[in-house]
Design a binder for these strands. Structure first.
Length: 799
RNA sequence: GCCGGAAUGGCGAAAUUGGCAGACGCACGGGACUUAAAAUCCCGGGAGCUAACCCUCGUGCCGGUUCAAGUCCGGCUUCCGGCACCA
């Protein structure tokens, strides 16, 4: 009887006590560094989706060890964050305690899966020995001018007077008190990721990421080339726009300014319709960005009456509108509208009856004409008759000479908002001094520990709960010793996860974030697997930090991850995302109790294409446990001595070794397992297996079902352990069968099938096919136009 | 809305990237074993028309390219992920 509970406990204990999966310090060995995204230890515990990537890279880690690599495979906890803080607030427990409980639960659940993590290197982002270095990196960024304070829009609950996370805003209202939420400007720490935008695009060339990941990042960064151009306003102000089509400047018929633009406040005094503008601005503050930029929605706007802009090219006066389809966060927050050649501007102009001036002619009369290919400039003063590309060059030259602007590359990517008005995050190690400004705390004083609070209370007036702790906030300026105040914002959860893979290399180092020679040996990460949902934030943020660390000489590689892959989500039985509220969460504990870790591991790898979403199906698991039971029962009994593959299984064994070896490398775990199942079926049909074959089978199986494989390995008294043996080789020529099947088609439809020797020539096969009675009959009555022969596959007679 | 993906039997899926659609598994049906059931083992299933063979249709929808299309091209539909303070 296959007693998985006993077997799994036994081997997990043995692996742990022998430190079998600890990475070795011997830097002469070839290294391999697989990485999974470390989990956020949520209060709900693990669900069956979490282990999918852990098991997948465990398969790789185990295979690499068998291939002779020194493997660093680790896990840790990304434990700072909003849900823990909110849970702590609600239940009056300190977040530190909540985190600890969650981590303990996660750890014990994960340990039951028999994943070959090096548990001696476990890290926790909320550990002060860890966040010391998160803070240290922040200080380096600050010293290089890459961390600065800037105004940003935040969700402001008008009831609680606190800043809310997007997630806490439900239909424009506060999740807790249902008051209206508005967009409010607030000074925040921001990291200058835009300075690295071009490098973040360029260096994608040198990494092995799936095209969809590269494309997502490139689109997210959103590079566009154009120009910034200054327009004189009748008030004497200058209004600067960013445009990708400076060539269309003669077609500007109005301008649009975003509702948050600073000049609006000033112009309210001059405008003849200030009430109307005020109302519009207040309304816009209620909308989400997605609503505002929705192309299908009716665009709204209000003209700022009483002022106008002047087109620098022809001195025409043009009206200025406020509209929320223009965002403060992109470009300059102002656009020059060219309705004839931009879709959004065109729609807006139609709605508000604004003039449309065509400046690019392509012989079509349908407006808007937005393409810039092959167009010729018209109605455009100095640009008339030029092609669009030449016009662009000329106009940029002109504005630069006349000091009205310059060529400009813009990115959709925005600088990274780094402040949170929260307790459960890394304190930002900065002191505000009235005289000296922002003063970094001395590196020797790191970590700047989170002060202990008896009972955590909700923040007041939009500040972090830390602001209420006067003894902590009030300090002396490190430079001038005057009274000063600590920064009370904390870092976002993304901070700790932007460099954790460096810490795995040297997790107990108290002098440096990791010793340089250790980083040199282990980095880069060879294979990083994670969710598609992290493509544009976490993945980009950590690449940015890594490039910065490269620039200041901490790491030697420009990119942190040599290869990236992504897993699909595991959905509930009803095909929906697993969530507590939908009641479709499957707890791995139940699966482990009923079927054991090996079956669960096998099932999660067999469930479907690793990169696509898969629905959990409890009855399907049975197929995997049945397979393991067959291995346990049958193979143990029918084992004869021999050191060769039996002739009848020879080719199948080689094919299976090849299939498993290759498929796991391209994430085709499901077909690798199917190959093992097929092989077992063959063995069943043959009715026996010898010791050599069995040993090979166990090594292959060991990737997916390590406990059972070790157990059988021991029962059969093979040397050492399955997981420490060498990965088996396959013989390419032995993979081929002596005979193959060829399909005979007439006009693409299969009529017959023949078996021929693998070595048979094209001519011989065609002759054989033509000799078949059914084929002969058809060919006699029709004219043969063409014969197509696909080697080792088919013949098609076209008649 | 914008960006990135996906769609194949009753179900999860496979298909050397243009070459025999449905491997492997679940569920189901039949048989063997059993007093019986469970478990196990063997066999069978894309749909339609058939006594059976033949034949016809079939990879979300419409059209195209090709000797040959799940795979390539053009146009849709539906679903999923992300949209910067959930992680």
């Amino acid at each position: 009887m296959y007693n998985f509970a006993e077997i799994e406990k036994k081997w997990q204990e043995r692996w742990a006590s022998s430190n079998l999966f600890q990475a070795k310090n011997d830097k002469t060995l070839p290294k391999y560094y697989p990485l999974i995204e470390f989990p956020y230890p949520s209060g709900n515990g693990l669900h069956v989706g979490h282990p999918r990537p852990y098991i997948a890279l465990d398969v790789i880690a185990r295979k690499r060890r068998m291939q002779g690599f020194n493997v660093l495979y680790c896990i840790g906890w990304d434990a700072f964050g909003l849900p823990t803080e909110n849970y702590a607030l609600k239940n009056g427990i300190h977040p530190k305690i909540v985190s600890k409980q969650n981590i303990n639960r996660f750890r014990s659940q994960i340990q039951r899966l028999g994943i070959s993590f090096d548990w001696s290197r476990e890290i926790d982002t909320t550990d002060e020995k860890y966040y010391k270095w998160t803070q240290w990196i922040f200080l380096q960024l600050f010293k290089k001018g890459l961390a600065y304070k800037s105004e940003a829009m935040v969700n402001w609950c008008t009831g609680c007077n606190v800043v809310l996370a997007n997630e806490e805003v439900i239909d424009g209202c506060c999740e807790r008190c249902s008051s209206n939420v508005i967009q409010k400007r607030k000074k925040q720490w921001v990291l200058k990721i835009t300075e690295y935008a071009q490098r973040l695009i360029d260096d994608l060339e040198n990494v092995n990421y799936p095209p969809k990941v590269k494309n997502s990042q490139i689109n997210w960064i959103g590079k566009s080339e154009g120009a910034n151009i200054k327009f004189q306003i009748t008030t004497g102000d200058l209004l600067e726009v960013f445009t990708t089509r400076p060539d269309t400047i003669y077609g500007v018929t109005y301008m649009v300014i975003s509702p948050e633009h600073k000049l609006i406040e000033k112009w309210l005094n001059i405008a003849t319709n200030s009430n109307e503008i005020n109302n519009y601005v207040a309304n816009a503050a209620k909308k989400t960005e997605i609503d505002r930029t929705n192309l299908n929605k009716d665009k709204t706007g209000v003209q700022i009456k009483g002022i106008a802009a002047i087109n620098p090219m022809n001195q025409t006066q043009i009206s200025i509108f406020v509209s929320d389809y223009v965002l403060t966060s992109y470009g300059t927050g102002v656009i020059m509208a060219v309705p004839a050649h931009d879709l959004r501007d065109f729609e807006f102009s139609q709605k508000y009856s604004l003039p449309v001036i065509e400046v690019v002619d392509k012989g079509e009369n349908k407006l808007p004409f937005t393409s810039c290919e092959d167009g010729v400039m018209i109605n455009s003063g100095i640009l008339n008759g030029l092609r669009v590309k030449d016009a662009q060059e000329k106009i940029i030259n002109w504005i630069e000479t006349n000091n009205l602007g310059q060529k400009k590359i813009n990115f959709k990517l925005r600088d990274w908002g780094f402040s949170r008005q929260r307790y459960w995050g890394e304190p930002i190690p900065i002191i505000h001094c009235e005289k000296c400004g922002f003063v970094p705390i001395d590196e020797s004083k790191l970590p700047l520990k989170l002060p202990v609070i008896e009972t955590l209370k909700t923040s007041k007036n939009g500040e972090s709960p830390l602001a209420a702790i006067e003894s902590w906030v009030n300090v002396k300026c490190p430079l001038c010793d005057a009274d000063a105040k600590r920064e009370t914002d904390t870092m976002p959860q993304w901070a700790g996860s932007s460099w954790y893979f460096l810490r795995y290399c040297d997790p107990h180092n108290n002098e440096e974030l990791a010793a340089p020679e250790t980083l040199k040996y282990w980095m880069p990460v060879d294979w990083y697997n994670g969710g598609m949902e992290h493509t544009t934030l976490h993945l980009l943020y950590s690449r940015f930090w890594h490039k910065f660390l490269y620039d200041i000489g901490v790491v030697e590689t420009k990119e942190p991850y040599a290869k990236r892959t992504s897993h699909g989500m595991i959905l509930g039985e009803n095909n929906e995302k697993m969530s507590k509220s939908r009641g479709n969460v499957v707890n791995p504990d139940e699966v482990l109790d009923k079927f054991g870790a090996d079956t669960m591991r096998l099932y999660e790898m067999f469930i479907g294409d690793f990169e696509s979403a898969a629905s959990w199906n409890t009855s399907s698991i049975r197929g995997c446990s049945r397979f393991l039971e067959r291995v346990y029962g049958f193979l143990q009994l029918h084992c004869e001595d021999s050191s060769n593959f039996s002739p009848e299984l020879n080719s199948n064994f080689h094919k299976t070794i090849k299939k498993v070896s290759e498929d796991v490398e391209i994430l085709k775990f499901n077909t690798a397992i199917a190959a093992l199942m097929s092989l077992l079926n063959e063995i069943y049909a043959a009715g026996k297996i010898n010791r050599f074959e069995f040993k090979t089978f166990l090594i292959l199986l060991c990737l997916f079902a390590p406990h059972l494989s070790e157990e059988l390995w021991e029962i059969l008294k093979f040397n050492g352990m399955a997981c420490t043996s060498s990965w088996p080789e396959f013989n390419e020529s032995a993979c081929h069968e002596s005979h193959i099947e060829i399909a005979i088609q007439i006009n693409g439809k299969i009529k017959e099938k023949i078996f021929v020797e693998t070595t048979a020539t094209k001519e011989a096969i065609i002759k054989l096919a033509k000799g078949l009675p059914a084929i002969q009959e058809i060919l006699q009555n029709h004219e043969l136009k063409k014969e197509i022969y696909v080697p080792a596959s088919l013949i098609n007679f076209v008649i």
